[in-house]
Amino acid sequence: MLYMIATGLLCGALLGFVMQRGRFCLTGGFRDMYLAKDHRMFYALLIAIAVQSIGVYALIQFGVFEFSAGGFSWLATIIGSFIFGIGIVLAGGCATGTWYRAGEGLLGSWIALFGYMFMSAVMKTGFLAPVDQSMKSVQTSSNSIAETTGINVWFWVAIFTAIVLWIVVRELKKPKVAIPALKPKRTGLSHLLFEKRWHPFFTAVLVGLIALLAWPLSAGTGRVFGLGITTPSANILQFSVTGDMQYINWGVFLVLGIFLGSFIAAKGSKEFRFRMPDVKTGISSFIGGNLMGFGASLAGGCSIGNGLVMTAMMTWQGWISLLFIILGTWTASYFVFVRPRTKKKTVVSDTAVTA
C-alpha cells in the first residue's frame, strides 16, 4: 500500500506540475487546430506518444511486463469519443486538464470534475452500466494494429516516429515570432521551474517520459497499464460513497497527484487563485463534465487513456478514438464559438442595411 501511495502520488504530481507549467491543454490544442489553424499542441501530443511508444515497447521487449490490447469495441469507441470531444469544449478542459486546472483554483473545473466523476461512476457501476456493457459488446477480436496487419509492432513505431521527427524538424525551422522578453524576477532553478516559458515540444517530451514511467510503477502494484484518468476518477467517488477499499488503486493516487502537482506549480509561479465562474459557465462546465464522463467511460478512455496511451500501444482503439475526439471538439467549437460569431455579424449587417 505504501508503494502504491508513494509512486502513484509521485507520478501524478510530476504530470500535474509539467502540464500546468507547460500549459499542456489538449482541449485548447484540438480547438485551435480548427479555429486558429494552429497545430503545435497536436504536434506536441504526437511527440509524447512517440516517446512513450518507444519506451514502453522496449520495456515489453526486455520482459519487464506483458501487454495485451484485447478486443476492439469499435461502436462504443466511436460514439463515446465523439461525445467526449463535445464535452471537453463545454467543460473548458479534458479529463487531465480539468484535474490540473482544479489545482490552479479554477472553481469551474471543480464543477466539471464533479460531473465527470459522477457520470463515470454511473456508467461503470450505476444504472447506465448495462448500456455501457451492451455497446462495448459490439467488437472485433483484435485491437492491435500489428496483429491485424501481421506486421511487427516495431515497424509501426518506427514509421510513426519518423513522421513525428519530420514534423518537429519542419516546425523548428519555421521563423520564430518575436515575443517581448520580460525581465526575469528569479534566477537559477526557480526561474526555470516557475517563471520561464516552456516550449510545447519540451513539455511533450517530459509528458511522454512521465507516461512511460507510469507503466513500470503501476505494474509494480499489479495494474499493468499506463496513465489513466476516467476509471480512477470514478473510483474516488465510488469509494467516498461506499467505503469499499476495492476502489482504491494506483490510478486513484495518480489523479490525486495531478491535483497536488498542479497546485504546487501554480503556487510556485503565483498563478493560483480561486476563480468563481458565472452561472452560464458553471452550468456549461457541469454539462460538459457529465458528457466527458459518459463519453470517456463508453470509449474506454479519455484524451489521455486513449489519445496518449492506447495510441502509443499502436491500437485501433487509441487512434480511432483520437480521431473522433478531435471531430467532437471541432463540432462543439463550431456551435460554441463560430456560429454565434457568424450570427452576430449577420445581425449587425442587417441592422446597418436597415439603417
Rank of each mutant, 00 (worst) to 15 (best):
Gly228Pro: 01
Val241Thr: 15
Asn290Ile: 11
Leu322Val: 14
Asp278Glu: 12
Phe337Ala: 00
Val309Ala: 06
Met245Lys: 15
Gly328Trp: 01
Gly228Trp: 04
Ser284Glu: 13
Tyr247Glu: 03
Gly228Tyr: 05
Leu308Thr: 09
Ala296Cys: 10
Gln317Leu: 11
Leu213Lys: 05
Ile248Glu: 10
Lys270Asn: 15
Thr329Ser: 08
Tyr247Cys: 04
Ala296Gly: 01
Thr311Gln: 13
Ser285Gly: 11
Gly305Gln: 02
Ala211His: 11
Ala296Thr: 07
Gly307Ile: 04
Gln246Tyr: 13
Phe272Gln: 08
Gly268Pro: 08
Ala266Ser: 12
Trp215Pro: 09
Ala299Gln: 05
Gly300Asp: 03
Ile236Ser: 10
Met310Asn: 12
Ala312Asp: 10
Leu209Cys: 14
Thr331Asp: 01
Met276Pro: 00
Lys267Tyr: 14
Asn290Ala: 15
Gly261Ala: 07
Ala312Trp: 06
Gly222Pro: 07
Val279Trp: 13
Val252Thr: 00
Met276Lys: 12
Asp278Lys: 04
Gly243Thr: 10
Gly243Tyr: 07
Gly289Pro: 07
Pro340Ser: 06
Ala265Phe: 08
Thr331Leu: 03
Val252Lys: 01
Arg339Leu: 15
Gly268Glu: 07
Phe337Asp: 08
Leu254Met: 12
Ile229Glu: 11
Val338Glu: 11
Thr231Trp: 09
Asn249Pro: 08
Val279Met: 12
Gly243Leu: 09
Trp319Thr: 07
Pro232Leu: 06
Gly220Gln: 04
Met245Phe: 14
Leu327Ser: 06
Gly257Asn: 08
Tyr247Phe: 14
Gly293Leu: 09
Ser303His: 02
Ala299Cys: 11
Ala312Arg: 08
Phe259Tyr: 13
Pro232Ile: 00
Met313Leu: 15
Ile283Leu: 15
Trp316Leu: 15
Gly261Ser: 06
Gly288Glu: 02
Leu212Arg: 11
Met313Pro: 04
Thr230Leu: 10
Phe263Cys: 12
Trp330Cys: 02
Asp278Val: 07
Gly228Ile: 05
Ile236Phe: 11
Phe337Gln: 00
Leu327Phe: 12
Gly305Cys: 09
Phe337Tyr: 12
Gln317Cys: 09
Gly220Lys: 05
Val309Pro: 07
Ile320Lys: 14
Phe337Thr: 05
Pro216Gly: 04
Val224Gly: 02
Leu260Trp: 02
Thr231Asn: 14
Val338Gly: 02
Phe259Glu: 07
Leu209Asp: 07
Leu212Thr: 10
Ile304Asp: 00
Thr315Pro: 09
Trp215Phe: 14
Ser269Val: 03
Thr331Ala: 09
Thr231Arg: 14
Asn235Val: 11
Trp330Ser: 01
Gly243Ser: 09
